[in-house]
Simulated assay, not measured.
Amino acid sequence: MSRILVTGATGNVGKHVLSSLAGAGFAPRALVRDPGTASLPEGVEVAVGDLSSPRTLEPALRDVERVYLMWPGIPVEPRVIEMLAEHAERVVYLSTDVADLADDEQATSFHQDNERLIRNSGLSWTFVRAIDFATNTLAWADQIRQGLVRLPYGHASRSLIHERDIADVAVEALTAAGHEGRRYVITGPESITQAGLVQIIGEVVGREARWEDLPPETAREQLIAAWGNAAFVEARLRAWESFVDSPERVTDTVEQLLGRPARTFRSWVEEHADAFR
């Protein structure tokens, strides 16, 4: 039986990757920094390690054949990719659709740099390029409780994806043949305006909730204060603005790979409704 290492094991996607692998009879090993605080499915082996410290990974990689790799928001560490190649045969890397939009050897971004390292490592690989997560709307929870979300570009249309769909695609790529060297762009099943997303949340949780457009210059200051990364804020604002006239794309990749449609945003809200109440 293949030993599969799951990084980001306690995260929104990783926890579902672990559960699905364990439930299907595979042997997942969870990479965690603090096992005392990690809540993991029964039967999952735990390995202590940190992607920011390659020397801690040797025990976690022992006897591993496949790796689900979710890179945290830290600088790229080439030695980690080298270690994966020394121990494992395959890696499924959770990337972003932005890498697909500029897919060439000269383009540079966080995920593109990681993809390039993986492609050049000798590993067999699959890149799961996910659109923005539906979980990102949890940042609106406090405003939803007040009945009003104030941000720019309410008419920007988004195709947010359920984290369990990302996990299901990752598990398929980890455990089935035919995914080597593939780049999968995965999205939700429909494109909905940001104002429409707020309306759906309100309908599900049973409270009035609406969107009010905030001037981008005002939002820029607030988001930089909240996120601490001016370049990322600028990129987000430009993307949202572009989605007003050109809705975020929708792919049928989830359905093609899994034989069922991607989960809707409404179904995601129904599962997470308590977070908005």
Score class of each variant (00 low, 15 high):
N114V: 15
N114M: 15
E115A: 04
E115V: 03
E115G: 02
R116L: 10
N120S: 14
S121L: 05
L123E: 07
W125D: 09
W125I: 09
W125T: 08
W125V: 10
W125R: 10
V128T: 09
R129P: 04
I131E: 15
F133Q: 05
F133G: 02
A134Q: 09
T135Y: 12
T135V: 13
N136E: 11
L138Y: 07
L138V: 11
L138S: 07
W140A: 05
I144Q: 01
G147T: 08
L148G: 00
V149F: 07
V149L: 13
R150F: 00
L151E: 14
Y153T: 09
H155W: 12
A156M: 11
I161M: 06
E163I: 04
E163Q: 14
E163W: 03
R164L: 11
R164E: 15
D165H: 03
I166L: 10
I166S: 02
A167D: 10
D168T: 12
D168W: 05
D168I: 01
V169L: 06
V169E: 02
A170L: 02
V171Q: 01
V171D: 02
E172R: 15
E172W: 07
L174R: 06
T175G: 01
H179A: 00
H179S: 05
E180W: 00
G181R: 05
T187R: 08
T187Q: 11
G188S: 08
P189M: 02
P189N: 05
P189K: 01
E190I: 08
S191L: 07
